[in-house]
């Protein structure tokens, strides 16, 4: 099943905001860590910077900056907002 409103986090240009639709596909540990930082379904995050050569990307949520790997960022299902 594919919803056309869903986007990949890594495809979004820096400076744009997206809403998180689902964290389901992430590894449990990482999901817990993100939730520890307040990121869960429905929160709006923005992409601050994209890494070069597949390096980590930086996302921003309520003034905190978090680096995660692109591979994992791709598993986040997001919706444009």
């Amino acid at each position: 099943m594919y919803l056309c409103s869903n986007m990949q986090l890594t495809a979004i240009p820096s400076g744009h905001s997206v809403r998180i639709h689902s964290l389901e596909s992430l590894d449990l540990l990482l999901r817990r860590r993100l939730m520890d930082l307040g990121i869960r379904e429905g929160t709006t995050i923005s992409i601050t910077r994209r890494g070069l050569w597949g390096g980590p990307i930086i996302i921003e949520y309520k003034g905190q900056f978090i680096g995660i790997r692109q591979r994992e960022a791709r598993l986040l299902e997001v919706i444009g907002s």
Binding site: R33, L37, F65, I66, G67, I68, E72
Partner: peptide, 9 residues
């Protein structure tokens, strides 16, 4: 084992 990276800046 499954690896991930998450760092707060």
């Amino acid at each position: 084992e499954k690896s991930f990276f998450l760092v707060e800046l």
